[in-house]
Design a protein around this nucleic acid. Structure first.
Lengths: 114, 114
DNA sequence: GATGCCAGTTACCTACAGGATACCAGCGAT
DNA sequence: ATCGCTGGTATCCTGTAGGTAACTGGCATC
């Protein structure tokens, strides 16, 4: 069964699932910062302006639950925690590119014909 | 200037713009109901289970602001109001298809390797 | 032994999306 | 006249995302 053949309510459900994973104020900025090299908790916090520890902590857990981020604890002293973007995370790229494109064109559209 | 060449903060902004337009509990179900033929306010309300008049009213205004829906008032007696999906709304299709696909695969992924 | 860094947690608070319910004016049918 | 349909508004309420600030335990440095 391919997604194309699904009943419409199922399609909406899958769209909602996708929205749930990537929406919110911080998910994409965090993934971005990590792509730019930030791996430690505090590094990510510094790389994402204005985010608080509580929110970062929660968002990282969400991202980990959704397999987009991998959390590794090294048994050093003190313990070192590393967050990395998973290979699976790359599967989001076509979607994110599509969203950038639509957002870009939409803004132009709203400006030219309000 | 193509979206590909934009600085990353701009890309995030466009993604947020896109999210703002299509996220929320009701926007897609409403567009769907309209695609299935509902045009009058009460028809749409009946076609979208559980939505309240207040929320439908607000969502239709948002969709109209974003040029996805066209509101036409006919000078009959009593007045008839028709909502239709705009041609521009079709530009969302690649994005929505991408979201259905990602959501579908993601759910499979979460089930097979939790 | 005091200070500071790391990786968070906890408790409390605010703003906003969305929900429940009631209501309005205008008209047509009974 | 009164009931019901239309296209909504107005009020009040709840739930959740996100924000503020303080705090913890372990280690390292001064």
């Amino acid at each position: 069964m391919k997604p194309k053949d699904l009943p419409i309510e199922q399609k909406i459900k899958y769209v909602q699932d996708t929205l749930y994973v990537i929406s919110g104020k911080w998910k994409l900025p965090i993934l971005l910062a990590m792509n730019f090299g930030a791996r430690r908790f505090r590094d990510i916090q510094r790389a994402v302006p204005k985010i608080t520890t509580k929110v970062l902590s929660k968002e990282l857990k969400d991202l980990e639950t959704n397999l987009l981020v991998i959390r590794t604890v090294y048994d050093t002293s003190p313990v070192t925690v590393e967050y990395t973007v998973s290979p699976y995370c790359k599967s989001l790229k076509p979607l994110v590119d599509e969203m950038i494109l639509w957002g870009y064109n939409h803004r132009k559209k709203l400006i030219t014909q309000p």
